[in-house]
Design a protein around this nucleic acid. Sequence first.
DNA 1: TTGTACGCGTTATCAC
DNA 2: GTGATAACGCGTACAA
Lengths: 344, 344
Amino acid sequence: MKENSEVTIYDIAKKLNLATSTISRGLKDHHTISKKTIEMIKKTAAEMGYRPNNLAASLRGNKMRTIGVLLPTVTQPFLSSLISGIEIAAQKAGYTVIIMQSHDSYEEEVNLTQSLYDNRVSGVICSLAMGTKDTSHFNVFIENNTPLVFVDRVPQSFETFHVIIDNFSAGYKATKHLIDQGCKRIAHITAGSEFSIYHERKKGYLAALEEHNIPFDENLCVKINSVTYDDAAKASEKLLSLKSRPDGIFAPGDILGVSAIQCAKRMGIKVPEELAVIGFNNDPISYIIDPNLSTITHPASKMGQTSAEIILKNLKQSRKKDQIVKQITFLNTEVLVRESSKRI
Amino acid sequence: MKENSEVTIYDIAKKLNLATSTISRGLKDHHTISKKTIEMIKKTAAEMGYRPNNLAASLRGNKMRTIGVLLPTVTQPFLSSLISGIEIAAQKAGYTVIIMQSHDSYEEEVNLTQSLYDNRVSGVICSLAMGTKDTSHFNVFIENNTPLVFVDRVPQSFETFHVIIDNFSAGYKATKHLIDQGCKRIAHITAGSEFSIYHERKKGYLAALEEHNIPFDENLCVKINSVTYDDAAKASEKLLSLKSRPDGIFAPGDILGVSAIQCAKRMGIKVPEELAVIGFNNDPISYIIDPNLSTITHPASKMGQTSAEIILKNLKQSRKKDQIVKQITFLNTEVLVRESSKRI
DNA sequence: TTGTACGCGTTATCAC
DNA sequence: GTGATAACGCGTACAA
């Protein structure tokens, strides 16, 4: 008995006095192999403890049956739900999922992109790092005809698949909801660059204000550098300490909304009576905070599934370069009204 | 210009009039190749846009430079932090991470184990599905000399690496903390099988009671089927509706602790004055709930890193079967006292 | 319906 | 220091 005895189709072939090609085909139910032979091959393979070697199989096609996923982090609830959706769709199709974290660093993102290519993944799903402006490191996938999907944090212009929510519309809906509740001075917290999802949400906020003839007050719009608990706390305090205080806050992230509520509670400001708050994402913390945080629901898992399905559908389509288009899939968001904004 | 032009070491060899073996070695800074040649090779490779093919390289060693991670789900905060830790350690070593979700199903776990093997991963990190009793589907990795680490939810007996916290001790510490706060009737919620981490925590709970001469009251120990919000709510309600109500609850999960606090609030029971609560894990929700939930901290990310490092260290060590041992790495837990249990 | 023979890109083992 | 060549395990034209 050998040490590292790995059963290959060659071993099966020898045992059955057949050619390796017959084994190979039999194992995949090829129609040119007789039922009897197929049965015998499968039975023997099972008996011998044969297991296919995806490595070798993939080498021929020069592609692993693998979807590469490149995200800022995996610990945010939205992103871990996204991964879950991707994994479910991939597993259904017999694909595996490789995860990489850019930690919101452009440099890491560039390196990891290389690494994904070196591993010859079948497709790539990416949500951009906060600071990424230039996206030329993704060109390698286009040139190589590897399907590429950007999700949530997508580049401004890149001719490939995008899976996003309509951030402008969501920002509009959130703000309008506050207006409908009677808010007159609606504050907003924002982050990221001019081309980020946060910028889109802000544009929706501005549009809603304008449509309802509410003048925009610069003091009511605070910019933070990172969507963290600490930055959020500072922003909330700044807003709620204003001489003419806001009576509503549209926070484009649940951490921000939660911190606003907590800050209000500390300062003795009643939520929602004196301050209505709406967040974004429907993270678990949004329904734990008291009062419950109204929010915008984000179909995270479905976005993951959709992204994976786009990859899978486009695996075989060897497009030519001039056929590459930008195809945007929008998923729905909804206003989820809870205690923190319910005045009427 | 070819369509799918992929530059290989063969192309470089032709261009430089060298042998492929020289290119291969030059690219990896082999000491038998002259500095000059190495430089020239690297320069030319870069110019030609060469990218290594990990697939082909792996085929020779019959192992991908990949760590397979098999978890019940990726959306629990503890588990996504674990993944993050694994990914960081793996990335540092030039390894990639494959993620698979068993969704707490034994059958899926068995299938995915196969799939990991079929992909010839270098090592496997696994946290068991809730219902897994038999772990023979992992034997294939032992036989194949593939390092295997069980983390958090580990099997009762399996001769390999385990990375866990001391659940008994953590349960003891949590319960003792409540006793120190003056609690006399301490309730407990439990889940899983007789060999689960929850059972260990319960044993710690029982030990603390006994040590302090507090009789164990069966009515104060509720078993739930799944650690979900709904089940937790039911359990909390049952406990707080008892004629002789508990004055403390040790909840072996933050969801359970949070639900207990919320239930108490609904019923007008004051926390911590009338009911002290301590949870487990230090999930984000634990510091969002009001009053803040005391909890047991769990070094999730570090557990991931440790697991990955164990894999990496044991890659080359071709142990023989009789050398395989069970090696358990314990990581620290700590009692994190917050508002929900601070009486003194 | 089955067999033959070669190629996928890289690396290890010799040989020079 | 460098080159030639055989593997690694599988899939697939092409032949029979």
